[in-house]
């Protein structure tokens, strides 16, 4: 509840975060399409913010690979070819397999609990078509965290960095192309298979289910992207 006498001053970083989240949702939701140039003045006017927080937000989006900033030409929503996307998934598959094989501790109860919780949350989304898009962003955030947690077990910070970059690039494509509800259901089922392997402390089953998941996710993403690009694979 906001009362007239209890307003709190908005800190600059908060404004930047709000701008970042709004733009991110626009990109992931497909309102801002891959390749589209961002009209900085218009965004400033629409959001009623100054240049500095907008700049901070765009830098953050660039780090995630969602936009590309070209000093003289302007800022664009990143564009991907199916080929780029296939490469992203190949990187993910290689890294995830390596991380799971080398250091993943199937006995780690805290991690197991967190992953179980993440997968359960993902299973609880999408009951209402009206909030579909909001939930999709949350769904993909859970997905990202779950996969990153598995990578983190390797203890290799560099690997995590490369992984997150490849991961985000995968998302922009699926979101820009309107990842379908049917896709999320398949994702959920694949995650449940991973969760079952975790619960069974079965490393082999875990490797197989994680690999299967990423291979299928890659196929889905490439398929969506090529549908978007006019059916060319």
């Amino acid at each position: 509840m906001l009362h007239a006498n209890s307003l709190t001053p908005i800190q600059l970083p908060n404004v930047a975060t709000v701008v970042y989240e709004q733009l991110r949702r626009q990109i992931l939701g497909g309102a801002l399409r891959p390749g589209q140039q961002l009209n900085i003045r218009q965004i400033e006017a629409q959001l009623g913010v100054s240049r500095t927080p907008l700049k901070l937000a765009l830098e953050r989006l660039q780090v995630e690979g969602l936009v590309s900033i070209h000093p003289r030409k302007g800022t664009f929503v990143t564009i991907f070819s199916p080929h780029d996307l296939r490469e992203c998934f190949e990187v993910r598959i290689a890294l995830e397999a390596q991380a799971l094989r080398s250091a993943f501790d199937v006995q780690n109860r805290a991690l197991l609990a967190e992953l179980t919780d993440l997968f359960a949350r993902m299973d609880s989304y999408f009951r209402n078509e009206a909030t579909w898009l909001d939930e999709l962003v949350e769904f993909m955030d859970c997905d990202r965290v779950a996969h990153v947690r598995m990578i983190e077990m390797s203890g290799n910070a560099r690997m995590k960095e490369i992984y997150e970059h490849a991961n985000v690039q995968g998302y922009i494509a699926v979101f820009g192309m309107r990842f379908s509800y049917s896709d999320t259901l398949q994702t959920q089922a694949e995650h449940r298979a991973i969760a079952a392997a975790l619960h069974a402390h079965d490393r082999d089953a875990l490797l197989v289910s994680a690999r299967t998941h990423l291979e299928r996710a890659g196929l889905r993403a490439v398929q969506r992207l090529s549908q978007h690009n006019g059916g060319e694979l």
Partner: peptide
């Protein structure tokens, strides 16, 4: 167990179980 409890309605409407679905 094809989809989580409560998601059946949206799932069938998505076409995932149609003749050309998943």
């Amino acid at each position: 167990g094809f989809v989580p409890a409560g998601q059946g309605g949206a799932a069938v409407a998505s076409g995932i179980f149609d003749a050309d679905g998943y």
